[in-house]
Design a protein around this nucleic acid. Structure first.
Length: 580
RNA sequence: GCCUUCGUAGCUCAACGGAUAGAGCACUGGUCUUCGGAACCAGGAAUGGGGGUUCGAUUCCUCUCGAAGGCGCCA
C-alpha cells in the first residue's frame, strides 16, 4: 500500500501536467507483468502530445531507484510495470503471520453505524433458495463491512400481514373444516409437518384467489380480502390462527438462521409499522406528495420518470409501500445509522426507486442514508419455481440434500463436519457468482464438492492444518515465538516460482477484502480464495513441505495460506473445519 | 405498449476500458515409492448480429434479434 502511494506521488511530482489525470495503479492479472502496473502513459500521452512509449520511458527514468522495487519495465503499447523486490514480498509474509486473524481487516468504515436488512422471508410462506441467497449475501456483506471497522446491525423485515397471509389463513381454515380439526390439535404436530401444512395452505389460498371469478365463482376472492382486513384489525375470529401460524414460521426461520450462522439483532414486522405508515401517508396528502385517486391514495412516481404506486388502498389499509416508508423511521430510532442498506431480489428494484423518491420528499435525511442493493433471481434450471405450484425448493431441503450427498461420498466423515461442509457448499454456490447474475439452479451442478466450490477451499484449509499438525511441538512451533527468527528464516530462503506466486497472492488479500466490501461483491472474494487454493495445491503437488532445507520457510508459508483462507471464508460466512 | 437488466466454450459462471478473453463441470489423455486424490498436469472449444467512440471495446453509445424482471389497490 505504502509503495503504491510512493509510486503515484513520484509520477505526480515529475509530471505536473498529468496531475489532473487519475493515476491508477493496478494488479496485473499475469505476474509476468509485475506486481503493479499503470497505464498512465497511455492515458496521458495525447494530452501531452507525446507518444505513449516515449512518455513511459520518460516516467521510467523518474521512477528508477524506488526503495522496494526491483525493476521497472515498459511494455507495449506503453504500460509501466513494477516488480516488487523479494524482500518486499517476504515482508508481506511476516506481516500476515504477525497479524493472524486480523490480517485483511482495515479501518475505512471505522465507527460507522450500518443498518443491514436482509433475507426478509414472509411468515406463512416458505424460506426458499432465493432467501438462502439473500441471507448468504447479507451475512457476508455484514462481515465485510465489519472487517472495515463498521458497526453493523443485522435486521430482518417480515410480512406478517397482507394478502399472502390472508391466502394462507384461508387455506388453513379450509383444511381445519375438512378434517374437523382445531388449531389446538394441530399445535402438537412436529414442526416440519406444521410448516408443510402452511406451505400447502398458502398454495391452496393463492390458487383459489387466482381462479376465482367474482361474478360466477366460489367467492374465495372476497373471503380472502375479508380475512386480510380482519388481520389488520386484529379480529378475534382470526387472530389465534394468525398468531399460531406466525409463531410456527418464525420457529422454523430461527432454525435456519442458526444453521447458516446469522444472528439477527431485531426482527421487524409489517404489522408493527402498518398504522404508522398509513398516518405518514395521510399527513402528506395536503403537501401534495400523495393524492387520492379512485378511492386509493397514490404516489405519482411517473411525474419523475418512475411509475405510480398505491400506498393506501381504498379499503383503507397500508400497502407494502406505506409500511416500508414507516419502517425507515423506526429503524433510525432503534439505531441511529449512518447508512441503511436493504438487500432484496432484483424484482423489487423499480419498487424501491419509487419508495426512495417518496421518502426523499418526506424524510430526506433518511432517504439519503438509505441504499437498496439487489441480486438476480434464483430459478430452477429445468422448470419454473412458484409457490403456487408448490414446486419451490426450500432452503432447508437444499441444506439437507447437500449434507446427504457429502455423507454418501465420504463415509467416515463426522456429522458436525458434514454440516459445516454442506453449509459451505450451499453458501459458496450462492456467493461465487456476481450478485447481478441470475442463478439457474440445478442441484447436481450447483452444489459441487470439487473444483470451484466451497468444499475445495475448505479442503485446502484442512490440508494446511494437517501438514502443520504433523510438525507440532517440534522446532517450528518454537520458532514462531521469535519474530526475528521468522524473519531470518524467511529472508534466507530461496524462492521457487510457485512460492512467489503464493506470496503475491497473499499480499493482495486486504485489497480484495476492501473491494468486496465497497462493491458488495463477495464473488470477488470467492474467486480470490479459489485461486489462492489452486496455487497452494499446485505448490503442494510439486514441492515437499516437510523435510529438506526449506522446511521452516515452507511451513510458515503453509501457515500463512491457512490463515488467509480461514479469514476469507469467515468473511463469506463459511466455517473452516480443521479436518474433513 | 412503456421502463430496467441481461445475452461469453456443450453446460454453469469470471474478466477497474487494457496486455494472449479466464475458471469449474462434462469429455479425452496423463500424474501417485511424497506431507490428505474433495488433489495435480495436459488437450479441444466462446464474446447473439450490424454500425460507432477510443491508442485499445466482452465492457461505453446506437440499431437489431433473443431472454428475464417491473409497470395504481400483492409483497
Amino acid at each position: 500500500m505504502k509503495l503504491q502511494q510512493e509510486i503515484t506521488d513520484r509520477i505526480k511530482s515529475s509530471h505536473h501536467e498529468i496531475l489532473e489525470t487519475d493515476i491508477k495503479l493496478s494488479r496485473p492479472a499475469d505476474s509476468s507483468h509485475g506486481d503493479f502496473t499503470t497505464n498512465i502513459a497511455l492515458v496521458a500521452a495525447k494530452k501531452l502530445g507525446k507518444k505513449p512509449l516515449d512518455l513511459a520511458n520518460e516516467l521510467k527514468t523518474e521512477l528508477e531507484g524506488l526503495e522496494g522495487v526491483e525493476k521497472v519495465e515498459i511494455a507495449e503499447p506503453g504500460f509501466i510495470n513494477f516488480f516488487v523486490a523479494k524482500i518486499g514480498l517476504l515482508d508481506n509474509l511476516s506481516e500476515i503471520l504477525e497479524k493472524g486473524e486480523k490480517y485483511g481487516r482495515g479501518g475505512t468504515l471505522e465507527s460507522k453505524k450500518i443498518m443491514l436488512e436482509f433475507a426478509d422471508p414472509n411468515p406463512f410462506k416458505e424460506f426458499h433458495i432465493g432467501h438462502l441467497r439473500n441471507i448468504s449475501l447479507g451475512e457476508s456483506f455484514a462481515r465485510l463491512l465489519e472487517a472495515q471497522g463498521a458497526q453493523v446491525m443485522r435486521v430482518n423485515y417480515q410480512g406478517d400481514v397482507g394478502m399472502h397471509v390472508a391466502k394462507a389463513l384461508w387455506g388453513m381454515r379450509q383444511t381445519f373444516d375438512k378434517l374437523q380439526l382445531t388449531i389446538d390439535q394441530f399445535k402438537k404436530k412436529p414442526l416440519k409437518e406444521r410448516i408443510d401444512f402452511l406451505g400447502k395452505a398458502y398454495a391452496a389460498g393463492a390458487k383459489a384467489y387466482e381462479e376465482d371469478d367474482p361474478s360466477t365463482g366460489s367467492g374465495a376472492k372476497k373471503e380472502i380480502q375479508e380475512i386480510n382486513l380482519k388481520v389488520y384489525k386484529k379480529d378475534p375470529q382470526i387472530i389465534e390462527t394468525w398468531e399460531e401460524g406466525k409463531a410456527w414460521s418464525l420457529e422454523n426461520f430461527e432454525k435456519i438462521y442458526k444453521r447458516v450462522g446469522t444472528l439477527y439483532e431485531r426482527l421487524y414486522f409489517e404489522s408493527e409499522v402498518a398504522e404508522r405508515g398509513k398516518h405518514l401517508v395521510l399527513e402528506n396528502i395536503e403537501k401534495g406528495i400523495f393524492e387520492r385517486h379512485e378511492g386509493a391514495i397514490v404516489f405519482r412516481g411517473e411525474n419523475e420518470g418512475l411509475h405510480t404506486r398505491v400506498f393506501v388502498t381504498k379499503e383503507d389499509y397500508a400497502t407494502y409501500e406505506a409500511k416500508d416508508l414507516a419502517l425507515a423511521g423506526v429503524k433510525y430510532r432503534d439505531f441511529p445509522y449512518d447508512r441503511s442498506i436493504i438487500i432484496t431480489a432484483h424484482e423489487q428494484g423499480p419498487y424501491f426507486k419509487v419508495i426512495l423518491l417518496a421518502m426523499k420528499k418526506i424524510e430526506p435525511e433518511l432517504a439519503e442514508k438509505t441504499e437498496h442493493y439487489s441480486f438476480g433471481f434464483v430459478s430452477l434450471k429445468d422448470e419454473k419455481m412458484s409457490s403456487r405450484l408448490g414446486n419451490i425448493i426450500s432452503g432447508e431441503w437444499l441444506l439437507d440434500e447437500a449434507k446427504k450427498k457429502i455423507e454418501a461420498n465420504f463415509k467416515e466423515i463426522e456429522e458436525k463436519t458434514a454440516e459445516k461442509v454442506a453449509v459451505g457448499a450451499v453458501k459458496y454456490s450462492m456467493l461465487k457468482v456476481t450478485k447481478e447474475a441470475g442463478i439457474a439452479f440445478s442441484f447436481d451442478e450447483s452444489i459441487s464438492l470439487e473444483g470451484n466450490s466451497g468444499p475445495y477451499i475448505q479442503y485446502t484449509y484442512a490440508r494446511t492444518q494437517s501438514v502443520l499438525a504433523k510438525v507440532k511441538s517440534q522446532s517450528f512451533d518454537k520458532a514462531q515465538d521469535k519474530k526475528s527468527k521468522v524473519k531470518s528464516t524467511i529472508q534466507n530462503s530461496k524462492l521457487e516460482q510457485e512460492e512467489i506466486e503464493i506470496i503475491r497472492m497473499l499480499s493482495k488479500f486486504p485489497e480484495v477484502v476492501e473491494e468486496a466490501g465497497d462493491k458488495f461483491a463477495p464473488s470477488t472474494l470467492c474467486n480470490y480464495l479459489f485461486e489462492l487454493s489452486q496455487k497452494f495445491n499446485l505448490f503442494y503437488q510439486k514441492h515437499k513441505i516437510i523435510g529438506g532445507d526449506s522446511e521452516e520457510f515452507r511451513l510458515l508459508l503453509t501457515k500463512a495460506v491457512g490463515q488467509v483462507i480461514k479469514n476469507g471464508l469467515y468473511l463469506l460466512g463459511i466455517q473452516s473445519p480443521e479436518k474433513m
